[in-house]
Design a protein around this nucleic acid. Structure first.
Lengths: 140, 140
DNA sequence: GTTGGAAATGCGAAACTCTATCATTTCACT
DNA sequence: AGTGAAATGATAGAGTTTCGCATTTCCAAC
């Protein structure tokens, strides 16, 4: 009963919110824009207004249910929070996204923030490159 | 004669491009959006169309003269390439931007890319936090 | 120096993502 | 079931960036 998850997050268990949460959980694609979610749900027969998708994803983010990423300028990508924290490495040719977690980097970031007198609240790390497949096929 | 710099970068030495390059070099502010550049140049009496600012900054980026940053969603920030590579730490309260360079992190990134089979082309690292000033004044 | 043509510019319109407005509907609680 | 608060949906609007095209500028050859 996902409605419990929403209540726990401080959100009223409305039909659109439930549909979106279920959709994210069922999706094979881990990273999606609001537009992606909107279109995919439409095809699924679940009609939810685009404005609602944006609102709900923002609320989910505030509630810690999803994370918002800025892989590239222009639009936000959302990822359901499951499993543990990780950063991303992206292919500039095909858009493929892989995940990694590096304790050394995580620790260094805290050290840097401390050295600069900052209280660290968040961080974003993206490595861009050419993925194994694209290197092999040698696409320009 | 900055026109040499442009020629070297493979760009025709036009008046707007020269003006923009000179402006960036003279500016005390290191990070600016296209709109920032446009307005500041207007006040300076250098009128260059906004579309041209966007085009030229994008060309400068391709030529390696400037770097484009995505500090937050919504708009790109540009920085003239002078001095060496560095990453950024940003205050979420006041927008202050500091720079740092950490050899350990740089090296780890290459290792990660290699381990994942990627050919690394670029990376972006932003640490977000509360800067010393904002911590002292305890602003919410 | 002129001049011819390619390249760049400037303007407005348009694309794109995201937010605001507000009438209507839905949820939760008696 | 009834009621009030909150959420939704549709559309308009805001903000950033790009596009299309007429005009201007650069530059190299005469």
């Amino acid at each position: 009963m996902e409605s419990q998850d929403l209540k726990k997050a401080g959100l009223k268990a409305t039909l659109p919110r439930l549909k979106i949460l279920k959709f994210l959980e069922a999706s094979q694609v881990r990273h999606m824009s609001a537009e992606d979610v909107y279109k995919a749900m439409l095809e699924n027969g679940d009609e939810v207004g685009l404005a609602t998708i944006y609102r709900v994803l923002t609320q989910f983010e505030a509630a810690g249910l999803v994370t918002r990423h800025h892989f590239d300028e222009g639009h936000s990508m959302f990822e359901l929070n499951q499993g543990s924290h990780h950063d991303h490495i992206l292919c500039v040719k095909c858009g493929r996204v892989d995940e990694f977690m590096d304790p050394v980097i995580e620790e260094q970031q805290h050290k840097i923030a401390e050295a600069k007198g900052y209280e660290m609240t968040d961080h974003a790390l993206y490595i861009y490159g050419i993925c194994p497949n694209c290197r092999k096929s040698g696409k320009k």
